[in-house]
Design a protein around this nucleic acid. Structure first.
Lengths: 144, 144
DNA sequence: CTCGATGCAAAGTGTTTGCAGTACG
DNA sequence: CGTACTGCAAACACTTTGCATCGAG
C-alpha cells in the first residue's frame, strides 16, 4: 500500500524525468486500486484531485511510468488496462464481468490451477504468453 | 494444412451463417500463414483473390469466424492480430521483431521453458492468462 | 424468394501529438 | 532558468456501422 515515494522519485529523476503532481497522482491512484482500470477511469480518478488534468497527460504519464517499470499495461479487448503492480504475476480474467484478478507467480509457476478452483475460480482455459527473443533475432546480436 | 471445407461449411450453416466466397477466402488465407497477421494484412491477402473486397467485410468475417471458434484474435500492442489456429496453444512473442510463434500446449503445460531455450528462444518473462468465471460471477448462476 | 452478407463511406473509439505556456529541480 | 511537462485541441489508427444492393441456400 505504502509506495516509498522518495525512492520512486529518485528512480524517476535519475532517468531525466521529473516527478510532477500529475505523475504522482496517477501513480498513487493506481496503487490504491486493484481493478486494473482503463485510461479513462484513471483520468476520472485523477480529475477528482486535479480537476484541470487532461487526457493527454494521463496517457503520457501512463506510458512514461510503464517505461520506468513502475506500472504495466494489459491489453484486454480493444482497450488497454493498467496495473499498478509491475512485479511479475499472472491474471485471471473473468469472462462475465471482465474483472482482472492478480494471481501471484508462486501459485501458478507449477500451474496450480486446482488451488485456484478451491478458491472459487472456475478455470475454463488458459494461455501462456512468453516474451523474449526468437532464434532469428537472437542471432542478430547487432541492433540493441 | 487441409481445412475440411465441407465440415466447416456445415458448422457455419448450422448456426444460421452462410459460407460466402469472402468468408471462405479469409479462412483459407489465415490457414495458409503462421504469422498471425493484422486485419489490414489479411485484407491485402484476400484482395489478391477478391479485388473488390472491403475492409468492413474483412472485419465482419474475422469477428464471425471468431464467434464460430474457427480462428482466434490476439491482442498485441494496440492492434489485433489473428490466428488461424483456434485450438488451445500458447504464444511466444519476440520483443525485437514482434513475431508471434505458436507453442503447442504440451510443451508448456509443465512450463517446459528449458526446452524452448534449447530450441533457441531466449525467454525473458512470461505471463499466464487464465480465463473463466470469478467467484462472484460463478455464484450468480442466473445470467448465462 | 428470403435474409444474411457485401461494398462503400461515414462515424466511432481509444490513443497520440503539436504547440504555446507552466513549473520542476 | 533550462527543459521536461502540461492543457488543449486537432490528428490518428484501427474498428464498427448504416444503408442500398447482392447472392447463398
Amino acid at each position: 500500500m505504502k509506495t516509498n515515494a522518495s525512492l520512486l522519485e529518485g528512480r524517476i529523476r535519475d532517468r531525466g524525468y521529473r516527478m510532477t503532481r500529475q505523475r504522482q497522482v496517477v501513480l498513487e491512484e493506481l496503487a490504491k486500486v486493484d481493478t486494473h482500470p482503463r485510461a479513462d477511469q484513471i483520468y476520472q480518478l485523477v480529475r477528482r484531485r486535479i480537476p484541470h488534468v487532461s487526457f493527454g497527460t494521463i496517457y503520457r504519464n501512463l506510458k512514461t511510468l510503464e517505461e520506468l517499470g513502475l506500472i504495466s499495461e494489459i491489453q484486454r479487448g480493444h482497450t488497454a488496462r493498467y496495473d499498478g503492480n509491475a512485479s511479475p504475476h499472472h491474471h485471471f480474467v473473468c469472462r462475465k464481468c471482465d474483472r482482472i484478478i492478480d494471481v501471484d507467480e508462486a501459485s501458478t509457476t507449477e500451474f496450480d490451477i486446482p488451488s485456484l478452483s478451491r478458491m472459487g475460480y472456475q478455470v475454463e482455459r488458459f494461455q501462456l504468453q512468453i516474451f523474449g527473443l526468437c532464434p532469428a533475432c537472437r542471432t542478430k546480436l547487432d541492433k540493441s
